[in-house]
Design a protein around this nucleic acid. Structure first.
Length: 211
DNA sequence: TACGTGATGCCC
DNA sequence: GGCATCACGTAG
């Protein structure tokens, strides 16, 4: 397994194993939980930034009304969800870019949305991009974390196993919480699926779900 | 709490 | 064209 060296401060280096195809081949609901504690890394000309994943959501088309690929809807945008696990699915929501990890076998449109990070590396760069000094407001939402790391539509279809976009093994969460997904109120019974996962009591998680 | 924002795709 | 969508910042 390849490893990646992260400079987390001027004199501290963290060596972490890059996730491989075997890891991404886990069933989507399992993958969504296993990704908690993993490290999302983005290299840009401005520098490297990274954070621990602390919140995810699973989207399992074609039966999931909340998924862009509901009913096997296959468009230029969703095409990537039908490909191999471990690729990135980025899309624009209003003015923001959101990033997903494609999961499931080929021809099965499934993905895990990365909803929040705990900042780890390149924090000054992230603060500059987000125009805030508040560490708890830096990456506590899916649109916020992409802006903080410099993830954009240029990352659509990229593999998470090689630079400039990477996922690596980080830490193992003590406890995982589970609940309803956020922002999908008009999706029939699918809105009640408990497919949102987060690290219990982590202060970098996004807003609480509606009841 | 409410509004403006504005990429993408689907339904006329 | 019109509308809904896996947000967020700002105003009030």
């Amino acid at each position: 397994m390849k490893s990646y060296k992260l400079m987390i401060s001027e004199n501290r280096e963290l060596t972490c194993p890059v996730l491989d195809e075997e890891f991404f081949s886990l069933p989507t609901l399992k993958l969504a939980q296993e990704l908690l504690g993993c490290i999302l890394i983005k290299e840009t000309e401005e520098g490297v930034s990274a954070g621990y994943i602390v919140e995810t959501e699973a989207y399992i088309g074609p039966e999931d009304r909340a998924s862009h690929a509901f009913g096997n809807r296959r468009t230029k945008r969703t095409e990537i969800m039908f490909k191999q696990a471990g690729l990135s699915y980025t899309y624009i929501m209003h003015t923001h870019c959101l990033v997903n990890v494609v999961s499931g076998p080929p021809e099965k449109p499934e993905a895990v949305l990365i909803r929040a990070l705990e900042p780890l590396c390149g924090i000054q760069l992230m603060k500059r991009r987000r125009k805030t000094n508040d560490i708890y407001n830096l990456t506590n939402g899916p649109g916020k974390l992409t802006k903080a790391l410099g993830i954009s539509m240029e990352d659509y279809g990229r593999s998470f196993t090689a630079p400039p976009l990477l996922l690596a093994k980080g830490k193992t969460p003590k406890n995982i919480s589970q609940g309803k997904r956020i922002g999908i109120d008009n999706s029939g019974e699918a809105r009640d699926y408990p497919w949102r996962f987060w690290i219990t009591d982590n202060p970098h998680v996004s807003k609480k779900p509606k009841k």
